[in-house]
Simulated assay, not measured.
Amino acid sequence: MAITARQTAALALAHALSAAERGLPVFPLTARKLPALPSPHRNDGRRSTCRGACGLPGHGVHDATTDPAAVRALFAAAPWATGYGIACGRAPHHLIGIDLDIDATGGDSAASLRRLSLHHLFTIPPTITVLTPSGGRHIWLTGPPDLPVPNSASQLAPGIDVRGTGGYLVGPGSVTARGGYRLAPGTADLPPAPCPRALLRLLVPPARPHRPATARPDRGRGLVRFVLAAHEGQRNTRLFWAACRAYEHGFGDALADTLVRAAVHTGLTEHEARATVESAARLTTGTGRPGLDEDHP
């Protein structure tokens, strides 16, 4: 018997609630793997920088929640949803998704990951793994709470995408236009495993040593423009990247306030922006280097 659209939506909600019970922030997705709820600011006439502060649903990954009542409300507002997304980089798990996409280059991304692990001396621990309709897989790992992991596509290796802060993974049990997502056998009862430290360094590469700043007045303009051009879901990651580059080149302290103002202009709060810049400063100057010098596997 064919499964009706109503049954598909009910199953998506059930799977989303189960994930939320495990501490994974979720929100509804369409069959195209996109956020199911339209933006409440779509008719504002300009690009909105709201990340949910207005209190209305429709902010994509920023809608993600672990509260069962809020999850039900999101799905009630999107009865066409066929799946759910899981926000990465959020407490308590600070999820990192390693997406092995066999369709990206026609090659074997799993083999690419094995070569990386042999070269950099790390092992992927037993962890939750989700099988995708295309034949790929999503490996779930956890990261340090104070180290944003940027999203990337085929930068780690061909066919390997990374879902970090501001990104999301399609949750198991979701149904898309290409088929269903399901847990790999033997991984359903596993918790997300900590990301190996050597792999974490590849995802957020250590910066070059701090150098004294020079007095060039135009230094950092490109980084500020990079932050100002951030779209929803990229703001924290772009700010972190720009601040790292500024501190690497020795003018981070001089540019910090300007970067914060630029990030606030795109929609971050001043508290969020300053915390991200300070995290970049610790990482690049070697003073604390959050998550990389700690005893993290």
Rank of each mutant, 00 (worst) to 15 (best):
P158Q: 06
A157H: 07
P205S: 08
C244A: 13
S39G: 10
P125F: 01
T284W: 02
Y168F: 13
D293T: 14
R163S: 03
R115P: 04
T8V: 14
E270C: 02
A229L: 08
R225A: 15
A256G: 11
L121I: 09
S279E: 12
L202A: 08
P192A: 04
G143Q: 07
L37R: 15
A14K: 13
D99V: 04
R178W: 05
H249W: 12
T187Y: 00
M1H: 15
A281M: 12
N236E: 14
P196E: 06
P217G: 05
L17H: 06
T66W: 03
D103E: 13
A229D: 15
G180T: 15
E248M: 10
R46P: 00
G135M: 04
D161A: 10
E278H: 13
I102R: 14
R225Y: 08
P35F: 00
I139M: 11
T65Y: 01
T176C: 04
R274S: 09
E270H: 11
C50T: 06
R201C: 09
G55T: 09
G267A: 03
L121K: 15
G267P: 02
S18L: 08
H210Y: 13
A275H: 10
W241N: 12
A213S: 14
A242N: 07
G220L: 09
L113Y: 07
F27L: 04
I128A: 09
H94Q: 09
L190A: 05
L203K: 05
L190D: 06
K33T: 02
S48T: 10
G106M: 00
P40L: 01
E272R: 09
I160F: 00
G89Y: 03
P25R: 06
L17I: 04
Y168C: 02
C244Y: 01
P92V: 11
T65G: 03
S112G: 15
A87G: 07
D44M: 08
G97N: 09
C50P: 06
D161V: 04
L74I: 05
P172Q: 12
T66V: 14
R51G: 05
Y168T: 00
F251N: 11
H265I: 05
A207Q: 15
P125C: 05
T8A: 13
R221G: 14
H120Y: 15
R47Q: 13
C244K: 14
T287L: 12
